[in-house]
């Protein structure tokens, strides 16, 4: 196993009651550059290490942005890190969304819950070079309006770019004026040519399955539906065996892969 490299927390922004976005900068030498969809192993001193996808890549200062939801001991410790403190980072690991391969296609970016985090750099990169792609659709599902990540940024995508941006929530509050329902309900109002579309889907596994099946039904080729999977990971270097999913090692062959490969694996219970 490689040894983590120290990074410094330079920014901490609360996203929701249990989720924060932290910006990291190398304390010394930087790791090789990350691509959208890849993940880092983040080490909270003395507590442990977990895989976290990059939710932002700051190419200018070799910085990394991660959105962390406090659900366990390590993620809780990482969530609690404030500017000035250190975190150990290993990476980059895994496959990426491969946005360059989607050139000339309509883009359909479908996120559920914290699944928006790994997709954010794809949206940012796609909107930075809109001429390279057809129509860009960003569809986001959130539990409540308060749990929606990157609210200001989504507002910017919606108003200041040509992208079709739609957000839907499961449980609206009194102030919510947007859509109410599941994210797949947004698909029929998105603008895309099924045969000329690349879809990027991330969220809880049942949401991924429902979305991918819907897209296949609408005529998007399975291999052009890219999904990001999650399994237990200890090493991220293919040596610990934990992230196996049938023939795949998710740390190495994933986390991003085509629905044509993912579908039969996710269809087998307890694989």
């Amino acid at each position: 196993m490689t040894t983590p490299v120290p990074y410094e927390v330079v920014r901490w922004e609360s996203e929701t009651a249990d989720t924060a976005t932290v910006a990291l900068r190398p304390a010394g030498a930087a790791l090789p550059s990350f691509r959208p969809g890849q993940f880092a192993m983040l080490y909270a001193f003395g507590v442990g290490e977990i895989p976290v996808s990059v939710s932002g890549i700051s190419r200018a200062d070799q910085g990394l942005v991660h959105t962390i939801r406090a659900v366990g001991a390590v993620s809780g410790a990482l969530y609690g890190l404030r500017p000035g403190t250190s975190v150990g980072v290993r990476g980059p690991f895994g496959t990426d969304w491969d946005l360059p391969a989607a050139r000339g296609h309509d883009l359909l970016i479908v996120a559920g819950g914290i699944g928006l985090a790994p997709l954010r750099p794809v949206v940012v990169d796609a909107l930075a070079e809109p001429d390279r792609y057809g129509r860009v659709n960003v569809l986001v599902g959130s539990r409540t309006p308060d749990e929606l990540l990157y609210r200001a940024e989504i507002g910017h995508w919606s108003t200041a770019t040509a992208a079709h941006v739609a957000v839907t929530v499961d449980r609206p509050d009194d102030r919510w004026t947007g859509e109410v329902g599941v994210v797949t309900a947004l698909l029929h109002r998105a603008r895309f040519r099924p045969h000329g579309t690349v879809a990027f889907v991330c969220g809880p596994e049942p949401m991924i399955r429902a979305t991918a099946r819907d897209l296949v039904h609408r005529g998007v080729p399975a291999q052009r539906i890219r999904v990001s999977l999650e399994r237990n990971m200890r090493c991220a270097t293919g040596h610990c065996g934990h992230c196996q999913l049938g023939p795949l090692l998710v740390c190495r062959d994933g986390p991003v892969l085509g629905w044509d490969r993912a579908e039969p694996l996710l269809a087998t219970r307890e694989l």
Partner: peptide
């Protein structure tokens, strides 16, 4: 043992393989 880590007084972390 894969690595050792020390935390300095300023919270800075040093990692050693």
């Amino acid at each position: 043992r894969q690595w050792s880590a020390e935390r300095g007084p300023g919270g800075e972390v040093t990692l050693r393989a």
